[in-house]
């Protein structure tokens, strides 16, 4: 039908326009990283003339980029690991065992989903200070763990509840301890849910700026988004370096996203779709 083809054409045009809008800034960022300042100011849209690596060299030699990157990896990995361990333990108990107050406890955990922890930043700050955890990695990690627990428990209890009981029973009959059943039988089965819960928390933690801004002041401890504000200030007028810094900062998560786009999309939209 003619009308159908017309509307299909219109829709393709809309998608193409949108893709252009989404990709142009990223392309400009990536290409500008290889340009000299003179090129950048003269023709911001043109391709780089010589693909100079000077800007990237400056980032690695004159800024703490690698240090910030390392800090971000460390904090994200530690937070997600601790979070998944704590969440799995609690979810397993609430999903597979009968005990009094189970539903109430689960509801209390899930109530955490409604709490905007950012607004409790002042008492959190005072408390971390009191615990001697201000300006330290463990303090930040514990805050992230607390922030992520409700959503991780939500995903994991739902998943663990739905698992069939036969394997578990068979293992018990053979004399396996409760810990062994959890570790060797149930955990491998829960992998898909663990991946979703992991990504759902890893991305916001990796990208977070607010909590490090408040909690970390020592330059040596700063994370990548925070470090970015440091060298964006330092190289204020050196646009080639600025673009190189942005490109390098965006690279790790962009690569992960391209490799695992399905899991990223599922993980990040999960909470909202259910």
């Amino acid at each position: 039908m003619k009308a159908d083809r017309l509307s299909a054409g219109l829709i393709q045009a809309l998608l193409l326009l949108n893709a252009l809008f989404m990709l142009t800034p990223i392309a400009v960022m990536g290409l500008s990283a290889f340009k000299t300042n003179a090129e950048l100011f003269a023709s911001p849209m043109a391709l780089p003339e010589a693909f100079s690596l000077d800007n990237l060299r400056t980032i690695f030699r004159e800024t703490s980029f690698l240090l910030y990157l390392g800090n971000s990896v460390l904090i994200t990995a530690a937070s997600v690991a601790v979070l998944l361990v704590f969440a799995t333990m609690a979810s397993y108990a609430m999903a597979r065992y009968a005990f009094r107050g189970r539903e109430t406890l689960l509801l209390l955990f899930l109530a955490g989903l409604m709490v905007p922890l950012k607004l409790a930043i002042i008492p959190l700050f005072v408390q971390l200070d009191w615990l001697g955890l201000i300006d330290s990695r463990p303090g930040l990690v514990l805050v992230y763990v607390a922030m992520g627990l409700p959503s991780a428990i939500f995903i994991l209890t739902g998943f663990l509840r739905a698992l069939p009981g036969e394997l578990e029973e068979a293992a018990r009959i053979e004399g396996a301890s409760e810990a062994r059943v959890l570790w060797q039988i149930m955990l491998p089965l829960a992998r898909p849910a663990l991946i979703i819960a992991g990504i759902q928390n890893a991305v916001p933690i990796w990208n977070d700026f607010f909590f490090p801004l408040v909690f970390l002041t020592t330059d040596r401890l700063k994370t990548l988004p925070q470090g970015l504000t440091v060298f964006m200030g330092e190289f204020n007028t050196d646009w080639g370096v600025l673009f190189a810094g942005l490109t390098l900062s965006a690279l790790p998560i962009t690569l992960c996203y391209i490799l695992l786009s399905k899991q990223f999309i599922a993980g990040l939209t999960q909470g909202a779709v259910k």
Binding site: M22, L23, I26, V203, W206, N207, D208, F209, L224, P225, Q226, L228, T229, S249, A250, I253, T254, Y257, S261, F264, I265, L268
Partner: peptide
Amino acid sequence: FLPVVLSAV
């Protein structure tokens, strides 16, 4: 969805 995964900074 690509920009969604980048940090606001």
